Amino acid sequence: MRIIQSVGWREIRHIVYKEHEKRFLSNDSSLVESNTRAPVFFWGNNKNIIVEAIHRHIDALFGKNAEYKLESRNYLPTFAQFTETELTMEHTNDSSSIGEYFSEMPVQKHVLIRYGDLLSLPLNSKFYNIQVLEIQFCYWMATELLSNFSGRVACLTYGICKESSAIVRFLKRWKHEKSFPTLETFALHIKWSSFEHEMIKKEIGIKSYPDSIILSNANQSLPPEKNPGFFLRTFFDFEVSTYIVRDDGIIADLLIDEDSMFFSVKKCAEKQMVERGYNP
């Protein structure tokens, strides 16, 4: 509480609960990340009672005036105020407890996960409804997300796509069935694959942008990076020169090669894009 008082509690708008090693902490206000952002550190075996007690006091102070985020490895307190979560998965993690965490929490606005290949979740999990999902080392989870993700943005690295069918099915559902109504961007860096990207391009009907169109960088379609230490944006620093057209005329950037599958819905129809002479 002394740290909160030292920066002026009325100004704080973001509170981050961080699982941390006690030996790395110092007892001064330099721990505060900014005048509007304050951390709450927790560690040890008795964190349940302590963190819950602290949270009651913090909630009484800030209530709905602040946004809350959890950064954790093992401990998953289900405080309804959390709207963002950052997890570093470990082999000791119980995947079922993580599934329970997301089922009990409100649908998260933003989730970052390191080592997402350790996740095993039911298809009806609220995890797939996360608005912005970023996973480092997603591996086999990539195929599950291609089929089930219903949020706005997914940014995944080190994915494994063994078959072409998962990508073809994903693209056809968007193109013909008007599935994924809220999806804006699906960025997948591929570590290993055996799919035929040239075959996919022909089957989906990928087109090249006219020379008159200024191409956009893939990173422009992704939200600002929450944790640069995840190095997710470095995999999507390229221009997208091709696109597909939905049955109603709406276009989406689409790049498919041996390293990436990048898909991002644009805010115009193909006819408007050609008439305006630029890619909005």
Rank of each mutant, 00 (worst) to 15 (best):
S6L: 07
G8L: 03
V16P: 02
E19L: 04
E21F: 09
K22V: 08
R23Q: 07
R23F: 07
L31K: 10
V32H: 02
E33R: 09
T36H: 12
R37W: 12
A38R: 08
P39M: 00
V40A: 07
N45M: 15
V51R: 08
V51K: 06
V51G: 01
A53R: 14
A60Y: 01
S72E: 11
R73S: 06
R73F: 09
Y75T: 12
L76K: 09
Q81M: 15
T83R: 13
T85M: 06
T88H: 10
M89N: 09
E90C: 06
H91K: 11
H91F: 10
D94C: 04
G99N: 14
G99S: 14
Y101C: 05
E104V: 07
E104I: 01
M105F: 04
K109L: 01
V111H: 02
V111Q: 06
I113S: 04
Y115L: 08
L118T: 13
L119K: 07
N124F: 01
I130T: 11
V132L: 07
L133Y: 05
L133S: 01
Y139N: 08
Y139D: 10
T143G: 08
E144S: 11
E144F: 03
L146R: 00
S150T: 13
E163D: 05
S179Q: 10
F180P: 06
F195V: 07
E196Y: 09
H197G: 03
K201S: 12
D211K: 14
S212D: 09
L215F: 03
A218M: 06
P223K: 02
P224G: 10
P228D: 02
T242P: 05
R246Q: 08
I251N: 02
D253R: 02
S264W: 00
S264C: 10
V265C: 11
A269I: 12
A269L: 11
Q272A: 14
G277I: 05
